[in-house]
């Protein structure tokens, strides 16, 4: 499942090398943490979150087949010092 998010996001962004997905397995749910380059954040989220929603829909469908819940978290690491 980690691979799925990686393939889709790598195709979406400008800097595919910066796409990193970490998988955290729970009892029933799996959390997928997605990190992308700061400039690509908008690309994986999309207008009104449409792209993010589409990825989540795809994960949910795959989860139904595997009887597992998948959570996609888009991690934004902003620099506090800059502000």
């Amino acid at each position: 499942m980690k691979q799925l998010v990686e393939t889709v996001c790598k195709a979406l962004v400008d800097n595919p090398d910066e796409v990193k997905v970490t998988q955290i397995d729970g009892e029933q749910t799996t959390i997928l943490e997605l990190r992308v380059d700061q400039s690509d954040l908008g690309k994986v989220i999309g207008k009104q979150g449409r792209t993010a929603r589409a990825i989540r829909t795809i994960l949910a469908a795959a989860g139904m087949k595997q009887r597992r819940r998948f959570n996609l978290e888009i991690i934004e690491n902003f620099d506090r010092e800059e502000k």
Binding site: M1, Q3, L4, T7, V8, I58, A61, A62, K65, Q66
Partner: peptide
Amino acid sequence: SMIDQMGL
């Protein structure tokens, strides 16, 4: 590849 990785 998308269908494959989704397991459908």
